[in-house]
Structures are given as structure tokens and as C-alpha cells.
């Protein structure tokens, strides 16, 4: 159970790879268990994929087919014809939301965790309250404001709205993580003559990599799958996110479920890839950071 030697000198926000040495042949059963768990977890996702291939007349077949044996590509044909441009919009909105969230929340987290502002507790409490406001109410508030400002159907407007899903959460997370950064480090920086901004930029931020990644991940996922704000604020706009593509298949009397599900599948594939790649990068990045110290 030897750990990397750097751990003791690191702030706690470092990954302990305490089992790495044991990795190898003895862990194959863990992989097996992991695969089974993942399969169970993702079964509903599989079911969605199954439905996306199902012909209309088999949708409610009893008992249902486990595989789309009489599959149809009808849904995908529609989606690929109509939806691909929306993926770019979704990505832009997701990245924009991540940027807005981190830029707003990281300094606030730092202030709340380390700078002890007056009324900081009140701000933290408001942060909690803010998250309780139902999404619909938020969307309606934005609608009224944007209508007056002429901001409807714009991508930046949607980014700002989507960021409200993540900012209070991000502040709480940053606060909790940054509080774990040892005070001596900050004091040492101050002794060296670094101002608050410099301390934040060169010490606190780099050490909060984990928190930044977590926050970015959530912000991206939330905005990617957001439907409420998109439909309220961006419906009918020139640049719509992929989730709104679902509207094309909701007729006023009928829903084309294979196309709806196909839209969701197409929308989630790129994001899932990003997710898997990001996780690898993150793991590597954190390890590299650890060694550097």
C-alpha cells in the first residue's frame, strides 16, 4: 500500500493513488464487477436506444423485444437530415456556460473560503436559497427580462440563463474545496509580496484543479441537457441547441418516439465521448500535477 511519496507535502486535494501498485492481473474481477454495474446503470439508456430503432407498430408490443429485431432507421434518417447543425450550437452553449460559471464562481469561492468577507455567511445562505427557485419560475423571469431587452433567441442569452443552473452549486463546491488549501501557503505567498489577486491566480486556482474540473463537468452537462431554458428563451431562434430538436417530432397530436429517442441518442454520443476523454485527461493531469510538486 505504498503511496506516492509526494502526498505528505501536498495539500489534501491530491489524488492518492494508493492502490496503483496492486493493479494488474489481480484486479480483473473488479473490472468484471465494474462492467456489470455499468451495464445495470446504463440499461435505461440502452432501452432508449432500442426504442429509437423500433418501428411504430412495435413500440408497445407485449412482451417487448429486447433487441430491435425489425429495426428501422427512420428516426435516425430524420435526425441526421435535420439535427446535425444543432450539435455545434449545443457545444458552444455548453462551453460558454462552463466559462461563465467558473469565472463567476471561483473568485467567490475563494473569497468565502479564505477572505472572510463581512456577511459572507449571508451570501452563502442566499446561494442555497437561489437553488430552490423552481426552474420554471427562473425561466419565466428570464423570459420577461429578455423580452424587454430584446435578448430572446440569442446564444449568449441562453448561456447566461444556463449558467444559473450551475453558479450557486459551483460557489458551494469551490468554497468547500478551497477551504482545504492550507493557510500557510497563502501566507507564504503574501510574505513573498504577492497580492490577493496574484495569490488567487498562481496558487489557489492551480491547486483547485479538481474543483474546477468537477464544476466544469456539471456546468457542461447541465447546459447540454437543458430543455427548460432552451425552449423558453431560444425556441424558434436561428441557433437552437440539440435538445430543442426534439420539438420537431412532437406534433400537435402525435409524437414520433423513435425520432425523439434518436435525437437524444445523437445528442448524447458526442458528449459521452467528451466525457470519457475528459476523465482520462483529468486523471492524467492530476497525477502530473502531483509529480511536479
Amino acid at each position: 500500500m505504498s503511496a506516492h511519496s509526494h502526498v505528505g507535502t501536498r495539500p489534501p486535494a491530491v489524488v492518492p493513488r494508493w492502490t496503483r501498485k496492486r493493479q494488474g492481473r489481480r484486479t480483473w474481477w473488479k473490472t468484471a464487477v465494474g462492467l456489470v454495474l455499468t451495464a445495470v446503470m446504463l440499461f435505461p439508456v440502452y432501452w432508449m436506444i432500442n426504442v429509437s430503432f423500433t418501428r411504430d407498430q412495435d413500440m408497445r408490443k407485449s412482451p417487448p423485444d429486447l433487441f430491435p429485431t425489425h429495426g428501422t432507421l427512420h428516426g435516425y434518417r430524420l435526425v441526421l437530415d435535420q439535427q446535425l447543425p444543432y450539435l455545434g450550437t449545443s457545444r458552444a452553449i455548453g462551453l460558454g456556460t462552463v466559462a461563465v460559471t467558473v469565472v463567476l464562481a471561483a473568485p467567490a469561492g475563494f473569497a468565502l473560503a479564505k477572505l472572510r468577507p463581512y456577511a459572507g455567511g449571508v451570501v452563502g445562505f442566499l446561494m442555497l436559497a437561489a437553488q430552490m427557485i423552481p426552474g420554471i419560475i427562473m425561466a419565466m423571469g428570464f423570459y420577461a427580462i429578455y423580452l424587454t431587452l430584446g435578448f430572446l433567441q440569442s446564444v449568449p442569452g441562453l448561456i447566461v440563463a444556463d449558467s444559473t443552473l450551475a453558479v450557486p452549486f459551483a460557489v458551494l463546491i469551490f468554497t468547500a474545496f478551497m477551504a482545504g488549501i492550507p493557510g500557510e501557503l497563502l501566507q507564504a505567498a503574501r510574505t513573498d509580496g504577492a497580492g490577493t489577486i496574484r495569490t488567487f491566480w498562481s496558487i489557489v486556482l492551480p491547486m483547485s484543479r479538481n474543483a474546477i474540473v468537477t464544476v466544469s463537468l456539471f456546468a457542461f452537462l447541465w447546459s447540454w441537457s437543458d430543455f427548460v431554458f432552451a425552449s423558453t428563451l431560444d425556441g424558434g431562434g436561428a441557433h437552437e441547441p440539440i435538445t430543442l430538436g426534439i420539438y420537431h417530432y412532437i406534433g400537435n397530436n402525435n409524437q414520433e418516439w423513435n425520432a425523439i429517442m434518436a435525437t437524444a441518442v445523437v445528442a448524447s454520443i458526442p458528449a459521452a465521448l467528451i466525457l470519457v476523454l475528459a476523465q482520462r485527461y483529468v486523471a492524467a493531469g492530476v497525477a502530473a500535477g502531483a509529480v511536479k510538486d
Partner: peptide, 9 residues
């Protein structure tokens, strides 16, 4: 992959 459910509206 456990996060995939989150990608779905």
C-alpha cells in the same frame, strides 16, 4: 460512463 444518464434531457 456512469454520467451518461446526465446527458439526456
Amino acid at each position: 460512463l456512469f454520467l451518461v444518464p446526465w446527458l439526456l434531457p
